[in-house]
């Protein structure tokens, strides 16, 4: 489950404080912020930039460069479905299509009830148990039409 919480400057400062002694602390800080608040908001960008003596543009540039960081909250669960070659070879396109149908959203969208965000991922390293997906931090392999029902149901919980 993706934790969504109201932005809290003191908590963000704590996260920054935990990592700022590291060499190149920006990515670990952004991961920490996203893990805590579910996304990296504009307020977070300001605060991180100020703390690390970077411009907002620099931090914004980093946040938007990486697929993992989101500027807006995701659904309660994030379902990432592998769309790369090994999964394609194992019937992944049909599986991906069936998941879109079951959830009623396209890749990159969130269900209207805010429960599930569906995203494409390019390789989970499960190429010999393809097709595969990841629900939040849980990996799932050998996806079949039969397994999709359970997976989608779990995502909707």
């Amino acid at each position: 489950m993706v934790f969504q919480a109201r932005y809290d400057e003191a908590e963000a400062a704590e996260i920054i404080g935990e990592h700022r002694h590291l060499e190149g602390p920006l990515l670990p800080i952004l991961h920490g912020i996203q893990e805590r608040f579910g996304h990296v908001s504009e307020e977070a960008v300001r605060q991180v930039a100020a703390a690390l003596n970077l411009t907002r543009a620099e931090v914004h540039g980093v946040v938007t460069f990486y697929h993992d960081f989101r500027k807006a909250p995701a659904g309660r669960h994030v379902l990432k479905v592998c769309r790369a070659e090994a999964c394609q070879a194992a019937g992944g396109d049909a599986i991906a299509g069936a998941i879109e149908t079951a959830l009623g959203v396209k890749f990159g969208e969130t269900t209207p009830d805010g429960q599930v965000t569906l995203e494409a991922v390019y390789c989970l390293g499960l190429c010999a148990t393809a097709p595969s997906a990841m629900l939040d931090r849980r990996i799932v392999g050998r996806l079949s039409e039969a397994k999709i029902g359970a997976l989608v149901e779990e995502a909707r919980l």
């Binding site: 990515l27 952004l30 991961h31 460069f65 990486y66 960081f69 991922v121 390019y122």
Partner: peptide, 20 residues
């Protein structure tokens, strides 16, 4: 931990990413 960018497997972009 990386952040989902395939190109960071290229050694010099990986180094830039490590630098934040």
């Amino acid at each position: 931990v990386g952040a989902g960018a395939y190109v960071c497997g290229e050694e010099t972009s990986l180094l830039d990413s490590l630098e934040g």
